[in-house]
Nucleic acid binder design. Structure first.
Lengths: 122, 122
DNA sequence: CGGTATCCCTGAGGATACTG
DNA sequence: CAGTATCCTCAGGGATACCG
C-alpha cells in the first residue's frame, strides 16, 4: 500500500519535473570557475591574460580547461588573430548571452548575501 | 612598462568587483545537491524521505550533510515534531526565500538548455 | 603571449550497513 | 522515520615547470 503524505502526488511530480532542467543547467555551469569566467566575459571579449587577471586565483591550467569546456558547450567563442605575437580572444556566443538574466540574479543575490556575511563578521 | 589593452582599467576594476559577490554566493550554493534541495523546498516544506524521493540520486548521507550546511547558512529551517514516530520537516527560511528570483532564472535557463541538448541528440 | 605537461593531493561524493 | 558510521573512489583542482 502506498503511503500518502499531506502533499499531493501532483505536487511531487511537478517538483521532480522542475528539477530535471536544473540538473542539466548545473551539469555545465557548476564548478568553481565556470560562472566567474562567463561573468568576466559578459563585460566584453577578453584575452587569456586578461581573464587570468580578472578571475582571481585561477591557474593557467584551469582557465585553459574551463574555456575549452565552455567552448564545447557553445557558450564561449575562441578567436585567434594570426598576428605576431599571436593574440587570442574569448567572447560569449549568442547562446552564452542567454545566460544574462541568470547572471544578473546571481549577482543580485550574491551582493545581498555578501552584505549579510560582512555585517555578521563585525 | 604596463601594457595597455583596448580595455580600460576602469572596466577591469568593475569586473573584478562584480566577481566578489558571485564568489560569495557560489561558496554556499555550489556543489551537486544544494540548489536541487533548495528548489525542492521552494515547492513547500518537506520531510526527509520526501526530499530523498524528489532529489533523485542523492544518498541519505549527502542529503543529511547538505541540509546541515544549508541550515548553518540560515537558508533552511529544520523542525522536529516530537510525535511517535518522530517527524522532521524542512522548509526554506525567509532568507532562503530570497533565492526565489535566482531559482526562477536557473529554471528558465535550464529549460531552454534542456530543449537545446535534447534536440541535438536526435 | 597563450598555453601544455606532469605530478600530486584533498575532499566531495558514493556504497553499504547499522541505529534510536 | 530520519538519520550515523565506515570505508572507499575518483575527479576537481593546485603547483611547478616547460614550450612554440
Amino acid at each position: 500500500m502506498v503511503v500518502k503524505t499531506k502533499e499531493t502526488g501532483r505536487t511531487q511530480e511537478t517538483c521532480t519535473k522542475a528539477l530535471l532542467p536544473v540538473r542539466d543547467a548545473l551539469d555545465i555551469l557548476s564548478g568553481k570557475w565556470k560562472l566567474p569566467i562567463i561573468i568576466a566575459l559578459s563585460f566584453g571579449h577578453k584575452r587569456f591574460g586578461e581573464l587570468r587577471n580578472n578571475v582571481h586565483g585561477i591557474t593557467d591550467k584551469m582557465l585553459s580547461k574551463e574555456l575549452r569546456d565552455l567552448e564545447m558547450n557553445e557558450l564561449v567563442k575562441r578567436t585567434v588573430h594570426d598576428s605576431v605575437p599571436v593574440v587570442v580572444e574569448y567572447s560569449l556566443t549568442p547562446y552564452g548571452d542567454t545566460l544574462e538574466d541568470l547572471i544578473g540574479e546571481l549577482q543580485n543575490w550574491g551582493t545581498l548575501h555578501r552584505k549579510r556575511i560582512l555585517k555578521k563578521q563585525k
